[in-house]
Design a binder for these strands. Structure first.
Lengths: 114, 114
DNA sequence: AAGGGACTTAACGACTATGTTATGTCGCCA
DNA sequence: TGGCGACATAACATAGTCGTTAAGTCCCTT
């Protein structure tokens, strides 16, 4: 995305890329996940393997806290991963998710050009 | 929305409100409209009534430039209005739309708390 | 007041999103 | 190595989005 100067015109490609990120974000469930992942240790049970600080929260914990079925929860996480907003870490037979703070921090900047 | 301090926790209400704005924005067509409305005079034909600078662009012009049917275009505009991102002005039998710059400027700030 | 132009509403179809349950796959551990 | 636990995939139902065409409403002009 060519977004750097605040008031520049946005190309069609810029708009499409923006739409993709916004679609991933435009879900209360997924916003909630991002919110929880700000502090995994505070929002999820202690994990035996996978440091909450380092690797984030386990798939199952997130799904359970969301209160939806396991496939539904996993799909939300997949959307966030594919949008580049969270980073998955496989460890043993679990998958941990943590925020990609750099990518998330870029979003307000992108929005400044709309 | 209680968003003011950058790293504060977001309430469920905050998340729902954010979702609403993001859903309105998560459309290439609507992003394109906002882009055009940055400079109506540059993107739309001259209008007899309704100053482009003051009142924005006419519904019909926007719809035509979008390249969709008139009801489809009007619905996109309605979404933007209901999200508080553009302001409609009725004049004669036309409706002009302009950006609500204050509301739009608030969005990146809101996104800083996710 | 009749007609036309601008927009809205209604009704429909296609596609996407989000949820479900059932079933697969696959790594770990006993 | 047999089985369980964690996650993925499949198949399906429902709801929302976005497009269409056809009517409806309503103001303006003549």
């Amino acid at each position: 995305m060519s977004a750097s100067s605040p008031t520049s015109a946005l190309s069609a490609d810029d708009l499409a890329a923006l739409e993709a990120v916004l679609k991933a974000l435009a879900s209360e469930r997924r916003l909630q996940i991002l919110e929880w992942l700000k502090d995994p240790a505070a929002h999820f049970p202690p994990q035996e393997h996978g440091d909450p600080e380092l690797h984030g929260a386990c798939n199952l914990f997130i799904v359970e806290k969301l209160g939806v079925s396991q496939p539904a929860g996993s799909r939300h996480l997949k959307v966030l991963v594919e949008a580049g907003l969270v980073i998955p870490t496989r460890r043993k037979s679990w998958i941990y998710y943590r925020r990609d703070e750099a990518a998330i921090a870029r979003i307000p900047e992108l929005l400044r050009s709309i």
